[in-house]
Amino acid sequence: MAQLIIKNLYHKFGATEILADINFSLAQGKVISIVGPSGSGKTTLLHLCGNLLEIVDGEVDNSFSSQAFAFQDARLLPWQTALDNIAFGLKGGGVAKKQRHKLATKMAFKLGLNNDDLAKFPKDLSGGMRQRVAFARALVIKPELMFLDEPFSALDIGLKQELQHLLMGLVVNEKLSIFFITHDLAEAIKISDEILVLDADPGRIVKQIVLDRPRESRDEDYIFNTTRQLLQDPQIISTFELNFKKK
């Protein structure tokens, strides 16, 4: 079974230590979330795992056959229509134009886009629409592993739920694995199998939380209670500097 294994990973930018001694693994069909304050090296970790940054020290063993990213901003090519943007990854994979447009259109419909939207340039799409296009672009290549870098943070609640629901469906049915970065604890509790808490200076894993309850039975109460419980954890309090009021 495909998996992502990180062993003794360190990273520096110049003399600044960004990440230290990172160890974890992500199995097929699982969702792992990284939470941590800004500057804790979450995005750097994602870039290292996704092979967008060169590994300096440590090991990243990625045996997934395909992967895709969704970033906080949609990162669409402004000079291409929504349709061509969605087909971008397919084109890179050598899929012929007719076929990739067909696949892209099908995926776009699944994400609630219509034919009018597909003919538009990104400048004429709303922020939410752009993120739909970005997800369609990522999902249309049928990735085994998805890297999500806070892609829901600028979206309204409805769209956020819709996209999360879609992804969770793929996790169950297609054995999609997800590497999810967020600073929203409740969001992480809702969708993850495992949560890693990253503390800053340098970024290191200070807490590992395994969520046993099956995802479909995690109701509002469970999410609320677990979040509250975690927010009272001394380790979490010091990581997110939640005690500043008491000082």
């Binding site: 967008l52 895709a68 990213f69 990162r75 971008f88 990854g89 084109k91 890179g92 290549i141």
Partner: peptide, 18 residues
């Protein structure tokens, strides 16, 4: 955008043209 196109392992020629 460069990161994005790298994330799809886009071939160099296509990175140039697109």
């Amino acid at each position: 955008l460069n990161d994005m196109s790298n994330s799809f392992k886009t071939p160099l020629l296509m990175r140039l043209t697109d």
